[in-house]
Structures are given as structure tokens and as C-alpha cells.
Simulated assay, not measured.
Amino acid sequence: MSEENVRTDRLVLTRPVPADLDDVFTLYSDPAVWEHFPSRRHTDPATTRGLLDAVDESWQLVGLGSWVARDADGALVGTGGCDLRLGLAWNLGYRLARASWGQGYAQELIRAAVAAARRVRFDLPITAYLLEHNVRSKAAAERAGLHLVWQGPDAGNPDPAAVRLLYADRPLSTVVVRELTAT
């Protein structure tokens, strides 16, 4: 089964293509979707192109990466899925357009991503790496069945007080935690 195009009850999930650049840039340049990490907001399409190149590399290397999520009418709902992180774990992530918040799309996307990751590489843990003050993402990770396995300083964050949380679907070795939280 190809993971590149997946349908859920309400979403069409597709591997990103160059034609998605403008929609994804609009999403990633919206300050509302970066309220918890404003310095990561995209300010030019080249940054978004770099993100899409990294996602494409995940697809090429392991047959799975993030998708572009659209509703039945083709409107962008967001992006998300599981990307391989350092060859050690799947990183579950999503970013939804502000107009799509509170409608259950995150859990729909998460369910599809977890199922796809388990089909592609069941041996790898599924993780979520998020900021402590992002209560919606914490709740989404917990609803997905992930459990807090680490919390500590957010390496590389311009806010020295920022705390990262690492959730996982299973216990992680000390080595894996150290590697996943060092970047």
C-alpha cells in the first residue's frame, strides 16, 4: 500500500509536490500558527521550499514523510504526518491553518500518520517533540496514546527558558532520548 496518498473520513493527504509551495508558505507564514514559536515562522518562500525538500528526502529515503492535508473541496487544512528523525524514531507533527483548529482534524491526521508509520517501520518508536507551553499539542500527543518520556531545555531555541517535551509510544533508551533532544 502506498502511503503517498491517503484518504481519511474528511481529509485527502498527499505527498507534497512543488505546486503545494504557495499554500504551504501561506500556512507557515501565518503568525497565528506559530504562536508558541514565533521565530520559526516562514518569512520567505525559500524557507518553505527548504522544508518541502526535507520532507521529500524523508519520502525518498523511507517511503514516508509529512503530507499536505486538504478537505474534500481541495482547501488546505494543514500539513502533518510522521518524518524520520535521525534514523531513530518517527517524529509526529502537524501544523493546521487557524480556520481548521477545533474541528478534530489534528486527531484525524495523527491517526493516519501513526498507522502509516507502523506499516512502514513498526520497529521505530513514534515520538512527538513539542514545547511545554503548547497545551493543544500536548493534549493531541496524549490523545494519540503517547506518553511523556523527557522534558528539558530546548536546544537551539532563542528563548533560553523554553522547555521541550518528548512524548513516545514506548520507552526510549537514554541514548535515543539524548540524540532526539540534542537538536
Rank of each mutant, 00 (worst) to 15 (best):
A113S: 09
D83F: 08
V68I: 15
L109Q: 00
W101H: 09
G102R: 06
W67S: 01
A113C: 11
D71P: 05
Q107K: 04
S66Q: 01
G63E: 05
W101T: 00
L92T: 06
Q60N: 09
A128I: 09
A99P: 07
G102T: 08
E108G: 03
R98T: 13
V77H: 04
Q103G: 04
R111E: 06
L64F: 06
L76K: 08
Y129I: 12
N91S: 08
G65D: 02
E132D: 08
G87C: 06
Y105G: 01
G65W: 00
H133Y: 08
V68D: 00
D123C: 11
L86E: 08
A117Q: 02
N134L: 13
A117F: 10
R121Q: 07
D73Q: 13
G65F: 03
G74K: 13
G65C: 02
Q103L: 14
E132W: 13
G63I: 09
R136P: 10
Q107M: 12
A116Y: 05
W59I: 09
L88I: 09
C82E: 00
H133G: 12
S137P: 04
Y129E: 03
L131V: 15
E108R: 02
L131C: 09
G102L: 12
E108V: 08
S100E: 01
C82W: 07
A140L: 13
L146A: 04
G93I: 01
G104W: 13
G145V: 15
A99C: 11
A75N: 10
N134T: 02
V135G: 10
A128Q: 04
S66G: 03
L84K: 06
V68G: 01
R70G: 01
A106H: 05
I110R: 00
G93T: 00
A115P: 10
A115C: 13
H133T: 13
A69C: 04
G152W: 14
D73S: 13
R111A: 11
R95H: 03
G50E: 09
R143C: 08
Q151M: 12
A117L: 11
L61P: 05
D53K: 12
E57Q: 13
A75D: 10
A54G: 08
Y105L: 00
V149I: 15
R118E: 02
Q103D: 04
A117C: 12
A140K: 08
G80Q: 05
R85D: 04
W90C: 06
E132I: 11
A106G: 02
L84I: 13
G152R: 15
G93C: 03
R143D: 02
L84P: 06
P153A: 14
L86W: 08
W67H: 00
L130H: 07
L61A: 12
L130I: 15
L86V: 11
A115D: 11
E132R: 15
A113K: 06
A72R: 15
L109D: 01
Y94R: 00
